[in-house]
């Protein structure tokens, strides 16, 4: 069974991302939305754990949430894929289960 893990909290404000990365199995994917997208920034305190996550999981981030927050895709850690709302919906159909780390 494959799971799509969704993180919507800032990695600096909550432990949602850490918990997600600790408990996500290798065949599962991670989707960052809302304040969760702040984890995409390269050269930041979260970049090494995100790089490690990328070696085990596909990682996606919701583009409209990056735009709303002024986060430039050029400053994103290599390997993270942007999705729009249609892509978000498509992801939810490709995985057996959704787990939102609220």
């Amino acid at each position: 069974m494959s799971v799509l893990h969704i993180v919507n909290k800032s990695p600096y404000e909550r432990h949602s991302l850490d918990t997600c990365l600790r408990l996500a199995k290798p065949d599962s994917a991670i989707l960052l939305i809302e304040d969760g997208i702040y984890a995409v920034q390269q050269n930041s305190a979260t970049s090494s754990k995100m790089q490690q996550a990328l070696s085990n999981h596909p990682v996606y981030a919701l583009q409209p949430d990056l735009e709303a927050r002024g986060v430039n895709p050029d400053n994103m850690i290599d390997g993270i894929s942007l999705v729009d709302y249609d892509g978000f919906v498509k992801l939810t159909t490709e995985y057996d289960r959704l787990q939102s780390w609220l």
């Binding site: 600096y12 404000e13 702040y38 735009e67 709303a68 927050r69 002024g70 986060v71 430039n72």
Partner: peptide, 23 residues
């Protein structure tokens, strides 16, 4: 301070998420 610094980010465009852009 902390995540508050994100409030001042340039190029915030909330058109796609349907929120008011107060930046």
């Amino acid at each position: 301070i902390d995540d508050g610094v994100y409030q001042l980010m340039q190029n915030q465009d909330t058109g796609g998420v349907g929120l008011k852009n107060f930046a």
